[in-house]
Computed example of a mutant assay.
Amino acid sequence: MCNHEPPCPGAEAADHEAARLRAHHPEQGWSLLCNGVLVFEDTGEVLPDGRVVAPHRPVSAKAVAA
């Protein structure tokens, strides 16, 4: 999918969220990355092969201490 240089990380790469945006729809809560990954505002994802990645927001230090 990626046609620019340097190419974006692939959907299987650990840093796949670093790919460039192809489409951004904040009013609907999602973005499509250059590598075909759909990223949602809750940090969930759908990979190009249809696998779903559950939301993975970082846990704040305050929440850990409680």
Rank of each mutant, 00 (worst) to 15 (best):
A23Q: 13
R51P: 00
H4K: 07
L21E: 08
N35Y: 09
G44L: 01
V59N: 06
C8T: 12
L47Q: 07
T43K: 12
D15L: 08
H24M: 04
G44N: 05
A63I: 06
F40T: 00
V46I: 15
L33M: 05
P26R: 04
C8F: 07
E17Y: 15
E17W: 15
M1Q: 08
P7I: 02
V46R: 15
A19R: 04
P6E: 09
L21C: 01
A18G: 01
H25Y: 12
L47M: 12
C2T: 15
C2Q: 08
E45Y: 01
P6Q: 10
F40K: 12
N3R: 02
G50S: 10
S60G: 07
M1C: 04
L32G: 00
H25K: 14
A11Q: 03
P55G: 08
A11E: 11
A65R: 06
P48C: 07
R22C: 09
V59S: 09
L38S: 01
V52R: 13
E17S: 14
E45W: 04
P7R: 15
E41C: 12
A18H: 15
C34Y: 03
W30L: 07
H16W: 14
E12C: 02
V39N: 01
V64K: 12
D42F: 07
L38E: 03
P9Y: 09
E12R: 04
H16I: 00
L21K: 07
A18S: 14
P58I: 05
P48D: 07
A65N: 04
L32Q: 07
L33N: 04
A11I: 00
R20T: 02
N3V: 13
H24W: 14
G44V: 01
E45V: 01
A66E: 07
P58V: 06
P9M: 09
H56F: 04
D15F: 02
G50T: 06
H16Q: 09
K62D: 13
G44F: 01
P48V: 11
P48R: 08
C8Q: 13
S60D: 09
G29N: 10
A13C: 10
E41P: 00
V37S: 01
H4F: 11
G44H: 13
R22M: 11
V64C: 01
H4R: 01
V37R: 00
H4N: 04
R20P: 01
A19L: 05
R57N: 02
P26D: 02
S60P: 14
G10T: 14
L21N: 06
P6Y: 11
N3G: 12
L21D: 03
